[in-house]
Every structure is written in C-alpha cells, then in structure tokens.
Design a protein around this nucleic acid. Structure first.
Ligand SMILES: [Zn+2]
Ligand SMILES: [Zn+2]
Length: 735
DNA sequence: AGCACGCCGACT
DNA sequence: GTCGGCGTGCTC
C-alpha cells in the first residue's frame, strides 16, 4: 500500500498548533505544495488555511484526520523568500503561526478569494438579448435605451454607461432577465521604457557623498541620519532610480500618518514606472490588486505602511524605511512584529541594500550604527540656504499662564501674525480639558471602567474616556457634594483653540486633531487653506508633527513638552525628544528663518537641557549611557508577557506561575532576568486588570529559547483560560 | 478565538 | 413553558 499523504496546515486560530488533514478528495497529491491555501472543516466552521508541509505520516491515527475540502491555489501564494520570512517572524515574535500568516496576507486572500486581479467590468448581450426584436421593452425606456446601445456598439464598460447616464441598477435588471452578461478584463498597460519622468534635483556635496556610500546591490544597511529639510527623500529617489534601471523593484515603508497623497504624488512625478500604494485608506480589493501587481512585477515601486513589509515582490532590489524611529512600525496587538526589523532581515536574505532614514533615529539604530552593523550616513545641512530654527526655552514654573500660554509666548505669536506669517501650536492632548473637577470637594470625573480620568470635550459637549471609549454626559452638579461650580482642569486642544481665538479674534485659528479631522476631506481642505499662506494659527496634536510641512509657519509653540519625561515607560524621554524635534522641524524654510518656543516646567532637567543646548545626538548619547547602566534595550533584549482578566488575581496568579516555570527552565542571572508580575501602566482598562512580566536577556538566543519553551506551557496552563495573554518580543510600548 | 453544549433566572 | 446569561470544552 502506498504511503498516505498528510497535509500539515496553519489555521487562523490562537492555538499554537499545526493541524493535520488528508488531501481534498479527487486532487492529484503531486500538485500539493507548501504555501498553497486550502479550505478545511474545523470543528463546525470552515477555515482557510495554508499548507506548511506535505508529509506521509501524522502523530494522530489517520482515521481521525478529516479531509480538506478544497485546494484554492495552483501555486504557492508567496515567493519563497517571503514565505520563509513570515515563518521566521511567527517564531521570533512567538505568535501562533496560522494567525501570523493570515495577518501577513491581504484580507481577501484570507477569505479565500482567488489571487487574481479584478478587471474592469464590461457588458454584452446574450444570445437571447441579441434575438430581441427592435422596440422591445417599451415599458422600460431606460432598459430599452441600454439594449439599443448594446446592439449598436457590441459592448459597454463603466465609463460608457456613465456617459449614457444609465444607472447600474438597469444593467442588473437586464442581467437578471438573462438578456445581458458581464465580463471583466484586466487592463495591462504596456511596459514603460523610461525610468524617470521629472529630472532629479542636483544633489548637494553632502547628499552626493551619502548616496555614493549606498551600494547599488548586495546586503548593506545604511542609517541615513539627516535633519528635517536635509534632503533624505531626494537620496531615496535617486537610490531607487538606480535600482529601477537594473530592472529591479523598490519597496518603501513610511509611518501610518506619512502616506499622504503628496508623498505618493512626489514619487509619481519623479518616476515614469508604475508606483502603487498600500495603506489603510484603501479597500480590500484595491489592496489585493496592488499586492498582485507587486508580486507579478508590474508595480515597480511599492509605498506602504507597516504591513507592506509583507508585500511579495517579483524582483526586489532595494528597501527603504522612512522615519525609522516611528513607533507605528511595530504592530501593537495580535502578531506584534516590527516592520523595520523585518526589513533588515528581508534585505539580508535577499542580499539587497536597506536605507533607514530619520531626523531623530531610534536609539536601537544609533546603537547598531555605533557597533558597525549599520553604515552611518549623516546629513547636517538643510537644502538651499535654510537655517535651523532657533530654539527658545521658556521656564514656566514661576510665570502666570493664560490658558496655558505665557505672556511672552502670546507676544511672539502676535508679532509673527503681524509680520504676515503663520503660527503652529503643539499640544499633544485632544479634547477641551484632561478632566473635570469640583473645586469644593476635589471630585474628579473618572472612568467607571478604567483607572483614568475622563476627558472633557466641548464639540460636542461630553465626557470621554480615551482608553475604553466610554462616554457620558457632563453632570450639572458635582456627584459627590452637589456643588454646581464644576470646572475644567488643564488644557486640551479645544481649549487652546478657544483661548487663541479670544486673544486673536481677527485671525483664523484652525484645530488639527483626530476629532477635528474626522470628516472625510477635513484634513485635506485644511492643509489647502494653510498652504494659501494667509496668517493663521494652527493648534493641534501630533497629527501636525508628522508628514506635513507648512512652509509659511515661522513660529512653533510647544506647550506640554514635558509629557513623557517622567513616564514609567523607559522609552518616554526618547520619544519626547523625537516628537519635540519633529515639531520644531515644522518651523521656517529657506527665506524665512523659524523660531521654536518650548514651554517647560523642567528647564533644568539634564535631558531637557542636553536636548535643547547640545542637540539630539548628545541627548541620545546620554540616554544610551543610562540604558547601558540599567541594563535596558538596546544593551539587553526584552520581552513582555502580558495578562489581563476581569479579576486581578487571575492575571497575577497566572504570571506568577509563568515566572516560576521560567525560573525552573532558566534560573535568573546575567543571561536571563525576570521582573514582575507588575501592574501595567493603566492597571484597569475597559474593566480588565492588566499585569505584565518582564523578561530581559543578555542575548536574543537565550530569550528566544526560553520563550519557545514557555509559550506552549503557558497555553496548556489551566489559568491561561481565565486570562487574555500575549507575548511581546522587543516591546515598543511598555503600557 | 469561535462555537457548541449545558444548566438556572425572568419573559411572551 | 422558552429565550438567553456565560461557564467549560473542543477544534486535525
Ligand atoms: Zn464636589
Ligand atoms: Zn475608560
């Protein structure tokens, strides 16, 4: 008897197991390959899984195996290099393999859609439709009109229908009557011989030197460290041009917030070759089509956010990660991969160059540059003859503040507006005020479901928890003492907007935060208005800091620069510095030097002073030396095991046992250290109590080995079922 | 995670 | 009488 064929399948479940199935009935087993999708029965659901292995035995008796229902692909979905990268990442980030693979695929492929592009639909008459006598369908004039047009022209596409002014519903009716049928065709533009559309800018000596040090092929990681306006993008564009002329593709990753139509337009203006985007604003079909175009090589440049690191590329020749320090490159739930770190691995496996660019590189990357893993490239000059903005620290400890603004700040805002320039006010707190307080008894509006205060919003007026989305009406009287003198406590963007409007009644004050830009084109319209250049004040959150440059802004005011300085997250100060410089970088350009006012309560703090007096590199150096002493990343490696439960004791007990298991496997010492379980930064959130166990290691190997042993044991543990738990390798956010 | 089964409170 | 609350068990 011939050996049986058994399929080892990855299924989208949180179970850290692989499932064995028999091949679908009637399928030639020689056609079965790892990486193909199958539809399988699972309990009483049907799931889409991926073949991991085709083997001839199973640890289960064969009669217990169910046959797969269908084979969905004739070829593996992913090219081999990407397939292996996904498997590696599931392992490294300790995520169940089926779920990891599903996360890496476009939604429609997860759902079992064929890996084929949807073409442009067009309609033709069926035989029956053709046989219809002239003047038929008298009682349905629009349908008759459509029939006549089809009889005359043979076929109509969407544009034709629009031109004729015929709604799709009429076409649908005729389809249902069997008179018309639809087909689709994929439009394949003929390959474009030219690489460039616009002529490249002339590089400065510094830029040219940097580009010359980036090899055209072979594995190589460059950390391109250049201040705002120093022309990093031009280097990316010219490096991409070299790759395209070798006939290879480019993949560019940008932060969530940075993939604006302007970014895309800049690439499309420069290159004659097809550029596609992959971002959250696209629907599932658009994303799949772009993915397919990248895979078969029609798309030559792909620009995308985090998940685009999993785009299959027919012949990838260069990888670029812009704003590499941005935390959006690390997925914060489910499959917690770092797209930046995976980019490094992908470049290594493909033997191609990777450029990591930032004005404020992450400490990890600076460390890697220092130890020689990355090639360090520095751009210090701003393009043209632009000068760096002037930084002014304002110690606000003993100054009277008017709604958060010092007198001097207001004075400078006025001067700037009078000179016909624009002002940007940065406050990383949306809403009207961080909370509502009762001055008579000290009551504060707290969230019922979280350990946090409710934020007061005025447009529309309500109290809102930013952590669990809980909302409630604003009470008229204090729930505790019935006082009616409830008042907002602290400053949010809405309140700053109101205060600025009161001080400058004749000036446009524009608020930019998630609330004010919720409507579809709100942000675009606002950007357009600001670009017209009339004096105005922009007030907003980090939405203002990232992506957009406003050329007529000559004064930037940073109101709450200290947030993050005393955070329990060890990355708080690093992020504060990066955000601060990013905001500061919005000020001024060639012909208009900029000014940045930093209002701070901690003007004497060594980190603040270092950052403002000696710059980001000295600041980074200072933090790195602290990290070395305290044994934090990048000097030691870290994983966070989190657990949350409605009953706090469940989470604590589970993590205590996990720690015991871990210490059994590997006693604490230099190689591996354990800390916790400790309450998370927000201990209670959405009615769940959150705790975490920190594991730190001298090297990745030891951490990896421990976690790989621990994960299956945790899954088996009785207490695991009473908790939601996860493992976060290289955590970005300690919350 | 889903999704079943299963056994006790307040509804048509 | 049943609709539905979520406890626990299983998925090749
Ligand atoms: Zn009160
Ligand atoms: Zn809440």
């Amino acid at each position: 008897m011939a050996a049986p064929t058994v399929l080892e399948i990855a299924l989208p479940t949180p179970l850290r197991r692989r499932f064995d199935y028999l091949p679908p009935e009637g399928v030639d087993t020689t056609l079965l390959k790892p990486g193909q999708r199958v539809r399988v029965p699972f309990g009483n659901q049907r799931l889409i899984g991926l073949i991991l292995r085709v083997k001839s035995e199973s640890s289960l008796p064969l009669q217990n195996l169910r046959p797969a229902e269908a084979l969905l692909d004739t070829k593996p979905l992913l090219p081999d290099d990407l397939w292996r990268l996904c498997l590696w990442a599931a392992d490294y980030y300790q995520h169940p393999i089926g779920d990891a693979l599903h996360t890496a695929l476009p939604v429609l492929l997860r759902q079992g859609e064929p890996d084929r592009e949807k073409g442009e639909p067009y309609w033709q008459l069926t035989t029956e439709g053709k046989g219809l006598p002239e003047g038929a369908l008298k009682r349905a004039p629009r349908q008759a009109e459509l029939l006549a047009a089809l009889q005359q022209r043979g076929a109509l596409n969407r544009a034709d229908l629009a031109a004729l002014g015929i709604a799709r519903s009429h076409v649908k009716t005729l389809e249902d009557k069997g008179l018309v049928f639809s087909r689709e065709q994929v439009l394949t533009p003929s390959p474009e011989p030219n690489i460039l559309r616009d002529t490249p800018l002339t590089l400065s000596d510094e830029q040219a030197a940097a580009l010359a040090q980036i090899p055209e092929d072979g594995f190589h990681i460059s950390l391109l460290d250049g201040t705002t306006g120093s022309g990093k993008t031009e280097i990316y564009l010219q490096a991409i041009a070299r790759t395209l002329s070798q006939g290879r593709q480019a993949l560019v990753l940008v932060p969530e917030i940075g993939l604006t139509p302007q970014t895309l337009a800049r690439f499309q203006r420069r290159f004659a070759q097809p550029v596609v985007a992959l971002h959250s604003g696209m629907n599932d079909r658009e994303r799949l089509d772009a993915w397919l175009q990248a895979r078969d090589g029609r798309a030559r440049i792909v620009i995308g956010t985090r998940s685009a690191i999993f785009t299959p590329m027919a012949d990838l020749g260069i990888l670029i990660v812009d704003e590499e320090h941005d935390s959006s490159f690390k997925q914060q739930d489910g499959f917690r991969y770092s797209a930046r770190d995976l980019a490094a691995l992908r470049a290594h496996r493909l033997n191609i160059p990777l450029i990591l660019g930032s004005a404020t590189p992450s400490l990890e990357s600076l460390h890697n540059a220092r130890t020689g893993r990355y090639h360090y490239l520095r751009l210090t000059h701003r393009a043209g003859n632009a000068r760096a903005p002037e930084l002014l620290t304002q110690d606000i400890r003993r100054q009277p503040l008017d709604e958060g603004f010092s007198r001097d700040t207001l004075e400078r805002i006025r001067t700037t507006l009078d000179a016909g320039n624009q002002v940007l006010v940065f406050l990383n707190r949306r809403g009207y005020a961080p909370t509502l307080e009762c001055p008579d008894c000290g009551w504060l509006a707290e969230c019922r479901h979280c350990d946090t205060r409710l934020t007061l919003h005025q447009t529309p007026r309500h109290l809102h928890c930013h952590h669990c989305d809980h909302q409630r009406a604003v009470p008229r009287a204090c729930p505790s003492c019935k006082s009616t003198r409830l008042q907002p406590l602290g400053q949010g963007t809405e309140r700053s907007e109101e205060a600025l409007q009161r001080h400058f009644p004749d000036t446009r004050v524009l608020r930019v935060d998630r609330d004010s830009t919720r409507q579809k084109n709100a942000f675009r319209d606002l950007v357009e208005e600001v670009h017209r250049g009339d004096p105005c004040i922009l007030v907003g959150t980090q939405m203002l800091a990232k992506g957009h440059h406003f050329a007529d802004v000559t004064l930037v005011v940073i109101l709450d620069s200290d947030a993050g300085l005393f955070s329990t997250d060890f990355r708080g100060p690093e992020r504060m510095g990066q955000l601060l410089l990013q905001v500061a970088g919005r000020a001024g350009r060639a012909d208009k030097p900029g000014q940045v006012i930093i209002q701070t309560h901690h003007a004497e703090h060594p980190l603040v002073r270092t950052l403002l007096e000696r710059g980001y590199h000295a600041f980074a150096e200072l933090i790195l030396s602290e990290r070395r002493l305290t044994g934090l990343p990048p000097f030691r490696h870290m994983a966070l095991i989190r657990a949350e439960s409605k009953r706090p004791e469940n989470a604590v007990a589970f993590l205590k046992q996990v720690r015991a298991l871990a210490e059994q496997r590997h006693p604490p010492g230099h190689e591996l250290g354990y800390l916790g379980p400790l309450p998370a930064m927000l201990e209670k959130r959405g009615d769940r109590f959150r705790y975490q166990l920190q594991v730190n290691a001298a090297n990745r190997g030891a951490l990896q080995k421990l976690l790989s042993q621990l994960a299956p044991e945790m899954e088996q543990h009785a207490l695991a079922k009473r908790n939601r738990w996860s493992i976060d390798v290289d955590p970005q956010d300690m919350g």
